[in-house]
Each structure stands twice: as structure tokens, then as C-alpha cells.
């Protein structure tokens, strides 16, 4: 079959010609996969298996501490943390390290209206760009020096992922033991009545400060509002309790976890504390 001669070959024709050249070149002067490439693959795979065994061994030998406490922390963390407890008092939401960048992205978009951007928006756009890459960059050119845009984009992507991961790793989680030390300070600046004290202690220990800031303490996450002067909004004890039991039932779409497991008495204490928080003076 004779091809109809064209003035200038189209992009796809050129790409096809190049691939046919590639096939011919590989056939004429390539080398067989076995043993050449396979030899390198095997060595690399052995290295991978050794690294994995090495990490497992390091984890074991440094974590198995005195008295064989499974929660003792070694170089690479403990064997296991204490059992899950929904009515917990120390809430440290930490994903595995390869989600740190997402985790930190959430802290950048702190305003409630924009949380959606951090949680779903930016990752979705990034994923679409990644999948679409072969269709965005359709040139045949593969040499690095002739692909400046791709190279700059790559460096920026790697840098921002590294920075986000690093910031996520070092982000200060508000630990219950540290936050509870702030309670007397809260009583002072907020002029809290004594019946708000049990609620204040609960607030410091139940993990609320992992997402909410209060009188300068805690860290903001997931777009949770500052609660320093939540009482000035006079939402009412009933509302507070219902919200804590099921945040998304009263504020649709709320990402705040349910705290129904704290029990009615403690929820009431929390509500009293929240309503008494009229702002720092």
C-alpha cells in the first residue's frame, strides 16, 4: 500500500515514524532482557528486600524496651499505640507520613468556606493534571534541556510536596498534657465562673484543641473556628450539646467528629464552658 505523499507529516505521523524507528533500533542493536537488564533488576530487588528487613529489625530492636511495653517508643516508633478509645482524652490525629502533605494542606485553608479547597479541591486538580500529563505535553521532545516548562514544573512540584510533608511532620499537635496547663490562664483571661471549670478541663483534654484554637492555645485544622468568644454568639446549651453529639446533623457537611460517646454529663459540662466563653480580656 503506497502512502499518499503529504506536504508536511502531521504530529501523529511523526510520532508513529519515531516509534517504528525505535522498534527497528531495539531489534537491530538492543540487548536481550535476560541476562542484562534482568541482572540489574535482580540486584535492585535484593536491595529493596534488604532495606525492608533492615527497617523491620531496627524497629524491633529499638522499640522492644524494658518490661516489654508494646507502647514503648523506639527509633522508628512504638510497636503499637494504646488501644483506640472513642471517648479519648488525648487525640493526636496523625496520618501515615505520605499523607502529611494533605494534612498540612488543610491547615493552609483554615477558613470554613475554603476547607473544601484543601480537602478535595487541590488534590483533585493535582490528580487531573497528573493523569492528563501525556495530553498536556504532546511534543515528541524528550531531552531535558529542551523541556524547560516540564522541568520547572517538576522542580516546583517536588519542592512543594517536600515542604508540605516537612511542615506536616513538624506541625505542632496540641497535646492534652500541654493544653491542660493553660486552663488557669483561660479562667483568668476569660473570667470563667467556677461551674465552667470541669468543662474547660474536658475541652483541654478531649482533643478539641487539635482543631480549634482557644485563647491562643491549640492549633487550627479543618477550618474549625476559634472558640475564644463562642459564648458571645449565645447559641445555647441545648444547641451546643446537640452539635457535640452530631456536628453534621446541625451544621450540614461539618467535618468535626461526633462526641456523643463522652456521655451526657460531660457534654453538658462542655456546653456550659463554651457558653461561658465570652472572649479574652
Amino acid at each position: 500500500m503506497a502512502a499518499i505523499p503529504k506536504e508536511k507529516p502531521s504530529r501523529i505521523d511523526e510520532a508513529r515514524a519515531q516509534f517504528a524507528r525505535y522498534k527497528a533500533d531495539v531489534k537491530a542493536r538492543g540487548k536481550p532482557f535476560y541476562p542484562y537488564a534482568m541482572f540489574h533488576d535482580t540486584i535492585m530487588s535484593l536491595v529493596v528486600v534488604c532495606v525492608i528487613i533492615g527497617l523491620a529489625a531496627m524497629w524491633k530492636w529499638s522499640a522492644w524496651g524494658p518490661g516489654h511495653d508494646p507502647t514503648h517508643k523506639g527509633l522508628l516508633g512504638p510497636e503499637v499505640d494504646p488501644p483506640a478509645d472513642p471517648g479519648t482524652t488525648s487525640f493526636v490525629p496523625r496520618p501515615d507520613w505520605y499523607f502529611y502533605f494533605l494534612f498540612y494542606l488543610l491547615r493552609i485553608f483554615k477558613w470554613p468556606e475554603s476547607v473544601f479547597l484543601g480537602t478535595i479541591g487541590v488534590p483533585t486538580i493535582a490528580l487531573i493534571l497528573l493523569i492528563g500529563l501525556p495530553f498536556l505535553d504532546r511534543r515528541r521532545e524528550r531531552r531535558l534541556s529542551a523541556r524547560p516548562v516540564a522541568m520547572v514544573a517538576a522542580v516546583l512540584t517536588v519542592l512543594s510536596m517536600a515542604v508540605l510533608t516537612w511542615k506536616g511532620a513538624t506541625a505542632n499537635e496540641a497535646l492534652a498534657s500541654e493544653v491542660i496547663a493553660d486552663v488557669p490562664h483561660w479562667v483568668q483571661v476569660e473570667n470563667l465562673p467556677s461551674n465552667a471549670l470541669p468543662g474547660a478541663k474536658l475541652f483541654a483534654t478531649a482533643g478539641c484543641t487539635a482543631c480549634h484554637t482557644y485563647a491562643g492555645a491549640g492549633g487550627s485544622n479543618l477550618g474549625a473556628p476559634d472558640l475564644t468568644d463562642i459564648g458571645t454568639r449565645n447559641l445555647g446549651i441545648d444547641f451546643q450539646i446537640r452539635h457535640l453529639q452530631c456536628p453534621s446533623c446541625v451544621n450540614p457537611g461539618s467535618p468535626m467528629p461526633h462526641f456523643a460517646s463522652l456521655g451526657n454529663e460531660r457534654l453538658h459540662q462542655l456546653a456550659v464552658f463554651l457558653e461561658a466563653s465570652k472572649g479574652a480580656h
Partner: peptide, 23 residues
Amino acid sequence: YLLPWDQTAYWASVVGINLNGTA
């Protein structure tokens, strides 16, 4: 990450699932 059912696992999943919920 959730399977060991320890504190870290549990709370990371709470946050992760709630994130999905914001979509």
C-alpha cells in the same frame, strides 16, 4: 493504617473519613 485499632490509627481515620465527608 486503621487495622491495629490503636489511638493513632483510630483518630487518623476519624479525620480522614471526615475529610471525605466534606466533598
